[in-house]
Design a protein around this nucleic acid. Structure first.
Lengths: 330, 330
DNA sequence: TTGAAAGCGGTACCAT
DNA sequence: ATGGTACCGCTTTCAA
């Protein structure tokens, strides 16, 4: 069933059918009704490929993320997908993993499908890294980056000020007389770098010495983190509080502390469902996906409508207090 | 840059360029080389819409799931997306929520984009429910259902035998002299129904009486479940073990037990990352997504290649023992 | 208000 | 092995 069939059955030309389908005002009420009747009777759905070929768009946005099995990215994708749909777009999902070559390859695949724009979620880019693929993509379609920063023509970034958030946490802990703060992180994505430098900045601002032995890179696995922190504890490394770049890492640390029979404030990051599932429940930094994602989508729709939008937007984080840490937050 | 440009610059016809692009053997080595040189020099990428219009396919598979922020669905989508990509397909993601009307609407949207097939993940269908939209979709493209069951022409189901898994758990608990087993569930999807009937069947097989007060529907929220179970405990409802249809619910129950100062075996479902994050870690049924998803995709590729494939596949679950329950599993 | 017809950028059949 | 050309199904301009 195509536009010719509909035209024939309703005794008009395909141009008129097209006008009816697209809600053109230049159709008489009588004709419109006549055509609509046939369309509905035949359950006619226009061919999206043919429309795409003409309009050079199928209203599909590519979403590139490292790993949707990760709760943080899953939440971001969930929000983004819903918002896109509400704006009449579909989401083409592409999970890349952490390998740069894969990211490049998949970005090309996405562009080959002629998506209207690309949204990057939590990619592992930082300054001084090879961003040629992003630069190239941005020449073809708008590139929206959620929680990442690449300043190039055609890129638009919405980020959370995670650096300040971490620095503030250091200050809060310091106010409770903690001087030796263990910092756990996994990968140095843009976000990972921000947090780490927030830790260093926070320590410095508080006049605390930075002990490199307390800055520990760990794999993203509860058991593995637990093991690593336990061995730190056993080897007598001294710390009285823990911060982590991810809830998962914080939970590994908590488990180690529990097993070692030690108690200490622990602060996670992402305010994920994990922070509610552990016992005691985990105090965690909320990086405001609920705000970032809508901001990103409204940027995107603005761009596609030809409006002028800012290229960069930064939102501050908030600390969600649970069992593992309390303060008056002032 | 289109196929005409490439043809002109390499001094051949568009037919030949098309042959080169599609790896046809009917091209002389010399011509192929000449054309390839131009293609690479110009970074030519064929227009996917035009190809789609001709081939009636853009090699895109629609994925319909209720909520990708849920760790279980997120894992399923993650696996499926990766497998699809490895088979040369892209994934169009569509999260529906639990409303049937939305499911219908979104399924239509997916079909309107002319996807090559649809994969349903964890939809809330059971027998005696309105499956007309699925029936209709299956008339147009293959419909693969992961962890759901709809037996109609054009539908292909890959499920985990969750009913037996739950029944076996009841038997295991009973062997440890537990007779009063609290069962928590949230929504009665196909999967939810299977598990619940597994509970009933298991109790029956063990000759245990079924106390309807021990079958409790709860919302999917740790705090809410905790509150509900606490009030059960306080009201003196008697049970010595807990099973849940979801890790999240099991964790809520664990927290209630901890707060009430009671200890009891708890068994969750899905073997999600949550089960490793709670303390004590949660014993959980693994419903074998790592097996289900590859099976589903190989079914799909088989169908699209015109092979004959079974319409139904059932895989047994396994119990992953952690802190909250141990047995010899025999 | 309506229709004819020229694209959009490919694929594939039929000649040569 | 290569080229000419008729589609695929729609949008949109131009004329009437």
């Amino acid at each position: 069933m195509n536009i010719y069939d509909i035209a024939q059955r309703s005794g008009v030309s395909i141009a008129t059918v097209s006008r009816v389908m697209n809600g053109s005002p230049n159709v008489s009420a009588a004709t419109r009704e006549k055509v609509m009747a046939v369309i509905e009777q035949e359950d006619y759905i226009p061919n999206a490929f043919a429309r795409g070929l003409n309009l050079n768009s199928m209203k599909i946005i590519g979403i590139l993320c490292t790993d949707i099995a990760d709760t943080f990215y899953a939440k971001a994708v969930s929000l983004v997908e819903g918002l896109l749909r509400r704006n009449g777009f579909d989401a083409l999902l592409c999970c890349t993993g952490n390998d740069l070559e894969d990211k490049k390859k998949y970005l090309e695949l996405l562009l080959a499908k002629r998506v209207d724009a690309v949204i990057l979620i939590g990619s592992a880019f930082k300054e001084n890294v090879d961003n040629s693929h992003i630069e190239n993509a941005a020449k073809q379609v708008p590139v929206i980056i959620i929680n990442g920063l690449v300043e190039l023509p055609g890129t638009y970034c919405v980020t959370c000020d995670e650096q300040s958030a971490v620095a503030q946490n250091v200050a809060l802990l310091n106010r409770q007389k903690h001087r030796d703060i263990l910092y756990l992180y996994d990968i140095l994505t843009y976000s990972g770098c921000s947090k780490l430098s927030g830790y260093r900045a926070g320590m410095k601002q508080c006049g605390l010495p930075i002990n490199e032995n307390l800055i520990v890179q760990v794999p993203k696995s509860v058991d593995e983190v637990k093991r690593r922190v336990l061995s730190l504890l056993e080897s007598g490394v001294s710390f009285s509080a823990v911060m982590a770049s991810e809830d998962l890492l914080a939970i590994g640390a908590m488990k180690a502390l529990q097993e070692f029979g030690r108690s200490a404030p622990v602060i996670g990051f992402n305010n994920s469902i994990l922070s509610e599932c552990c016992s005691p429940s985990l105090t965690s930094v909320d990086n405001m996906l609920d705000t970032l994602c809508p901001a990103a989508i409204s940027m995107l729709t603005g761009i596609l409508e030809g409006k002028s939008v800012p290229q960069k937007m930064v939102i501050s984080a908030t600390l969600v207090q649970r069992d593992t840490f309390h303060t008056d937050l002032q």
